[in-house]
């Protein structure tokens, strides 16, 4: 399997995980009142769609420079995946709430994986650019 296909699939799957983590797999706190974690969920769903969409575009592109750009974008988006629950919109303050016990760890794991995948992709693409 080509590197392009592998990384495209990885980006699409990680994007899907960002969508599903706060909504289905590790859902945020159930409450009628809209708490901070509700807005974090909305933001993460948006980011997840964006990550997957970039993965789809990545799959169809043959130009290595554009793919390098997409990999760099994915790297910075992974920072946003973490920044939303930790700083920008935040989570519930109590540490025993579902959003802190389940959702935050899941988002930490997925963002670290996205950082690693995008860094490896950047390394391979930059290396092949140099050798050409």
């Amino acid at each position: 399997m080509k590197n392009r296909t592998i990384f495209a699939i990885a980006f699409i799957l990680l994007g899907l995980f960002v969508i599903l983590a706060p909504s289905v797999l590790f859902p945020i706190c159930e409450s009628e009142k809209k708490m901070a974690c509700f807005y974090t969920k909305q933001a993460e769903i948006g980011l997840g769609v964006f990550i997957s969409a970039l993965g789809v575009v990545y799959f169809f592109l043959k130009n290595k420079n554009i793919r390098l750009g997409i990999a760099i974008a994915e790297f910075f988006i992974s920072g946003l995946v973490l920044a939303y629950p930790l700083k920008l919109t935040g989570l519930c303050k109590m540490s025993d709430m579902a959003c802190r016990v389940k959702t935050l760890p899941a988002l930490i794991v997925v963002s670290i994986l996205l950082i690693l995948v995008s860094l490896v992709d950047i390394f391979f693409l930059a290396k092949s650019e140099q050798s050409e």
């Binding site: 025993d96 802190r100 016990v101 389940k102 935050l104 760890p105 899941a106 794991v109 670290i112 994986l113």
Partner: peptide
């Protein structure tokens, strides 16, 4: 990556 973040869970 699995055990530390999910410790509380």
């Amino acid at each position: 990556l699995i055990v530390i973040p999910f410790g509380r869970l």
